[in-house]
Design a protein around this nucleic acid. Structure first.
Lengths: 202, 202
DNA sequence: ACCTGAACACCGTTCAAGT
DNA sequence: ACCTGAACACCGTTCAAGT
């Protein structure tokens, strides 16, 4: 397990993020990153042990931007602020964002965000014994929602064509008129409001 | 847009699923599938236009197993049954399962599952106007939970080492003693119970 | 301390051809 | 109708060497 250089790590991660943003995750190859940095592919292996570790570091870099600037407000307000910031991040970096669901929270940057959420949940009145579970519940939903949105899993095009095929989709037929959603800002807000009802029980 | 053969599609998907189950998603190459089927890589392109469409079809095949055998029970019971079946699917096919979050519901098999969930939510008393949103909320959470679990995002190893690093993780320090979760069955059950409180409001 | 060149064992996919 | 062979433009990574 060789020691890694750190000097140009940020520069390399910047290049990787730029490539993914501009040309998608499939275009994010070691060779492409190297070319953008102005170096041979092999030079990267002095800074990251392999592509997987480079991606882990990239996820860490994304998470850094998630710490809210303002520490004020109630627990619920800070929680909500982190949720919206997460979704904003997904829209800024749709190609790399899905990696968060697979590699998150292992890095030290991820832990920092989790700690902020823990604190927000505590301040919101969640019993200590429930905090870690509720953190996983909320963050799983927020990550899943943001990924689904940027990947088009929610796209209502499917809903349109669904119902037209008639036949064996009784519930769809009954819900015609409610199927054409497309205001994901509003839906995300409604979902968060519902989740808050879990956090602050009767 | 050439017409595709269908004759050996199931056989090809079986081979693809077996490879992913045995050796992971990275090993799922067109070349590997072809070899397992006993054919040249190029022969596959008569059945699927490209690798992406093969993966879409694979997701559809997974979703077929999600339709509950019993149609009985209350809406909440059927909803719960689908949720547990989804999680079971993730444990059976951890490598391919994550694809559900990116490609689900586009296929006709996905639509069938969505219709079952719609019906369950209607029977559970969710207002028609809220059903599609609640379906997305619940399925996003269930998929996200199952993916996080099989990918180790929840692994408590991180929690252990987190707190030891002391310093700037105040909430973690306060929650020592509650951080070492590992009974994901129980956690999933508790999460579902909480979500049911959203579905059946006061 | 930092980087390069050549090589290995892979990819997905196109095109033209074969039965 | 179904399949093959050869080729193209890529991958991640190892190893030995160069300044």
């Amino acid at each position: 397990m060789r020691k890694l250089k750190t000097s140009r790590q940020p520069e390399i991660l910047d290049a990787a993020l730029a490539i993914a943003d501009e040309r998608g995750l499939d275009a994010l190859s070691m060779r492409a990153v190297a070319e953008r940095v102005g170096v041979t592919p092999m030079a990267l292996y002095g800074y990251f042990r392999n592509k997987d570790e480079l991606l882990d570091a990239l996820v860490g870099r994304l998470l850094t931007g998630l710490t809210p600037s303002e520490e004020a407000g109630t627990g619920q307000e800070r929680l909500s602020e982190i949720a919206w910031a997460t979704r904003r991040l997904a829209r800024e970096h749709p190609a790399v964002f899905p990696l968060l669901l697979f590699r998150a929270s292992v890095t030290s940057d991820g832990v920092r965000v989790v700690d902020l959420i823990y604190q927000a949940l505590l301040d919101a009145g969640v019993p200590e014994a429930d905090v870690p579970r509720i953190e996983r519940l909320v963050s799983t939903f927020v990550l899943g929602f943001a990924i689904s949105e940027v990947n088009g899993r929610f796209s209502s095009a499917s809903d349109e064509s669904r119902t037209r095929r008639g036949a064996d989709l009784p519930a769809h037929r009954r819900l015609v008129g409610h199927l054409a959603a497309d205001d994901w800002d509003a839906e995300f807000a409604a979902d968060l409001a519902d989740l808050m009802r879990i956090i602050r029980p009767v």
